[in-house]
């Protein structure tokens, strides 16, 4: 049975198509401003990559910040639940998840495969991917370089402010004092790890700990988090995909509970169309794309 999970995050969109426990397609692409059209395109591309037609997919779960903008999804589930399910499938021993997304960061506690508690950052970019994006502009380095570069630091710079705007000023100040880019990056990672730790600490961190989201692709931040919590963190082979994977797992479970007639009825109502907010096609008008 083919099912799909689609995770429309604030900066990156991910999709997983699976058959049973086997992942048949997994794609990652930037989100951009128009979720509905993007959702269509991502699904279309993913189907093409595994030579499936839309009607062969029995059930689709959408998650993430843009989940309400997936018109062809059968169900929407929060990203917290989907991340938890995805990580639990990969690492059943994990009790605490730290997810560092583009615009938010969150902590999730798991017990016996159930989400028992969670916490999210509030109204502040500190500890999120956006913070690091801003800093890479200031330092003139690429996002994927900052982790390895920070590990070369011998004396992390002191960064006290975690407001993105004030931290930017502080980075300029450190540069003017002659601090190296590596030291500044190490300081930024350390300060963010401290911030994330203080947030996740409210959940009472239990081993094992997994890190997901774009932040988990930053080795500098992972190491800084490990230093802060005092033990190793597990990172999935592709940390961006856990939400979509969890969504696909949920899709599989739900589909298994439905009768063939119920599934058929759902599929008949579903359309894979490139609808959009900006020029919603009326009947008879030419479809976009």
């Amino acid at each position: 049975m083919f099912v799909a999970g689609i995770d429309i995050g604030s900066t990156i969109t991910k999709i997983v198509i699976s058959n049973g426990m086997e992942v048949r397609a997994a794609m990652i692409t930037p989100t951009g401003p128009e979720h509905r059209r993007l959702a269509f395109r991502v699904m279309d591309d993913a189907l093409a990559s595994c030579f499936l037609s839309f009607n062969e997919v029995e059930y689709i779960v959408a998650t993430g910040y843009g989940r309400i903008n997936v018109p062809f999804a059968d169900q929407q589930v929060t990203e917290i639940t989907c991340h938890m399910r995805g990580v639990h499938c990969l690492f059943p021993e994990v009790r605490t998840i730290i997810d560092i997304g583009g615009q938010d960061s969150k902590g999730i506690k798991i017990k016996d495969g159930k989400q028992v508690d969670f916490i999210m950052n509030d109204k502040c970019a500190a500890g999120t991917g956006r913070f690091f994006e801003v800093m890479t502009d200031v330092l003139g380095v690429k996002l994927e370089e900052i982790g390895p570069m920070s590990l070369k630091s011998e004396k992390p710079a002191s960064i006290s402010s975690l407001c993105t705007v004030f931290a930017e000023q502080e980075v300029y100040l450190r540069l003017s004092e002659g601090a190296s880019v590596e030291d500044i990056l190490a300081g930024l990672h350390k300060a963010n790890a401290s911030r994330i730790h203080s947030m996740i600490g409210k959940l009472r961190i239990e081993r094992e700990v997994a890190m997901t989201g774009g932040g988990a692709k930053n080795i500098g931040l992972v190491k800084a988090m490990e230093d802060r919590i005092g033990f190793p963190i597990v990172v999935p082979p592709e940390p961006l995909i856990t939400g979509a994977l969890g969504a696909a797992l949920i899709a599989r479970e739900v589909a298994a509970r439905l009768t063939p007639d119920q599934l058929r009825e759902k599929k008949e109502k579903r359309r894979l169309e490139a609808v959009t907010f900006f020029d919603d096609p009326k009947p008879g008008k030419e479809r976009l794309l």
């Binding site: 910040y65 929060t78 990203e79 917290i80 639940t81 159930k114 989400q115 028992v116 508690d117 969670f118 999210m120």
Partner: peptide
Amino acid sequence: SKVEAFVETMDHY
């Protein structure tokens, strides 16, 4: 967004 996720936590408890 938080409450939506919290609903599942309430189910568990």
